[in-house]
């Protein structure tokens, strides 16, 4: 129930409160993917988050990367593909692929 405007507002509020903030955005999708291009997740430096970039499949990994982006300020482009359920690795069970851009809010 959090649309882009609300997620960006939250990012602005965190920033105003002095927290480090990163934004993750789905920029490309292939095949079946849970969220469309433009879907967003805002993350603060304590790992609090609002929004989503998948059905919950890759958010954990994205938050880790977002914390690194908050620390060093370097944007990152992340690729996630089909998960291997046997290996419990991070990926999409739906069989799609997504690319996510993570940037720090300056």
């Amino acid at each position: 129930m959090s649309d882009t405007a609300e997620i960006l507002e939250q990012a602005a509020r965190w920033r105003e409160a002095g927290a480090g903030v990163a934004l993750a955005t789905v920029v490309t999708t292939w095949g079946s993917s849970p969220r469309p291009v433009g879907a967003k997740l805002a993350v603060d430096d304590k790992g609090a988050m609002l929004g989503s970039v998948s059905g919950g499949c890759v958010e954990g990994a994205v938050v880790e990367e977002a914390l690194a982006v908050i620390r060093d300020g370097k944007p990152r482009l992340l690729d996630f593909g089909v998960s291997d359920n046997q290996a419990w690795e991070v990926g999409l069970a739906c069989g799609g692929k997504i690319q996510i851009f993570v940037e720090r809010v300056e």
Binding site: A5, L8, E9, A11, A12, R15, L23, E103, R104, V105, E106
Partner: peptide
């Protein structure tokens, strides 16, 4: 993303 851009987007949304 620069804070300035974030502010401009919020302004346009309003």
């Amino acid at each position: 993303m620069k804070g300035r851009i974030l502010d401009r987007v919020a302004e346009a949304t309003r």
